Amino acid sequence: MAVFTPLDEAEVDAWLSRFDLGTRTDLQGIASGIENTNYFLTTTRGQFVLTLFERLQPEQLPFYLGLMHHLAAHGVPVPDPMPDRARQTLHTLKGKPAALVTRLKGRSQLQPQAVHCAQVGHWLARMHLAARDYGGTLPNLRGLAWQRRIIPEILPYLTGDQRALISAELAHQTAVAESATYASLPRSAVHADLFRDNVLFEGETLSGIFDFYFAGVDTWLFDLAVALNDWCIHLETGAFDAPRRDALLQAYQAVRPLTEVEHSLLPDALRAAALRFWTSRLADYHLPRDAHLLTPHDPAHFERVLRQRLMPD
């Protein structure tokens, strides 16, 4: 597993006894993810995912767990946190914050077609509308404020051309964020990390959206841009695949049409989403936090995406 805190069956059984979820029948480590330790936990009453949080602070977790429960209650296919008998969804196991959520069915679709992108667009719009009345207030912790802090630390590791690119884009996004038009954008709690490996499908039907641990309050347009920059591009170049892009956008707008301001700022949002993930990957690569991060993602991918978003249509 990418982040590994070993658990034995006896300690899981003792921990599980505080829930009304039956007894354990199976426990399997999940060999994916770079932020948390995850296990598939099957009991006599269902299938769940047990997560031990390796980095996130306990004070952040109620926002994420509350958002997941809120969306599940509104019919969005997301993991639903399980309360114990004391009605708590944030727990402790082996000295670390922990949560137990429902396990979703399906598999990731890493080579999506237009039909899959349409499903993503539909459910992303549904998720945005459902989150309107969620009261959590945690900001996007990898948003522009974080980028302004971390980019100066990254600059010494970059080439001259890269330094010029990232600095210019940071200045551009700062100006956009300070504009009156940006302030008028609709926003709420958003996923902020809706990549291909965070969505499950059964056939061509979306069956689950998970990994909300980068969620925060941000614009719906930014969340849409994150999805477009992953689901609808040629991975080798970062260029858009027009049929997939159009399918996602049309399905999204069939549920929630974009405002005129959102249409005008979509190119900037696509650049902002590319900058966010280029910066994050550069930080993970050059400024690794600790040994929990096993293999950082290639920063060059989102550099390519950003350069593509800067090219004229």
Rank of each mutant, 00 (worst) to 15 (best):
A2F: 15
V3A: 13
F4K: 08
T5K: 01
E9D: 10
A10L: 08
D13W: 00
A14Q: 14
R18W: 07
D20M: 03
T25E: 08
A31Y: 09
V49A: 01
L56T: 09
E59L: 11
L61K: 03
A72N: 06
V78T: 09
P79Q: 11
M82I: 15
D84F: 07
A86T: 07
T89P: 00
H91V: 12
L93I: 10
K94P: 01
G95L: 10
A98C: 04
A99T: 01
G106C: 06
Q109A: 15
Q111L: 15
P112F: 14
H122T: 15
L124G: 15
A125T: 02
L129H: 15
D133C: 10
T137H: 11
L138R: 05
N140I: 00
L141W: 06
L144A: 03
I150T: 15
L155I: 03
T159C: 00
T159E: 07
T159P: 02
L165E: 05
A168N: 10
H172C: 08
Q173F: 04
A180F: 01
S184Q: 05
L185Q: 00
P186I: 03
H191P: 12
D193K: 09
L194W: 05
E202P: 15
E202Y: 09
Y213G: 05
F214H: 03
T219V: 06
T219Y: 07
D223Q: 14
H234P: 09
L235K: 14
P243S: 05
R244K: 02
R245P: 03
L248W: 04
L258P: 04
L258C: 06
V261C: 14
E262C: 12
L270K: 07
R276P: 05
R276N: 06
F277A: 08
R281N: 02
P288V: 00
R289Q: 15
L293F: 00
L293S: 08
D298L: 09
A300D: 15
H301L: 03
E303T: 12
L306R: 08
Q308H: 10
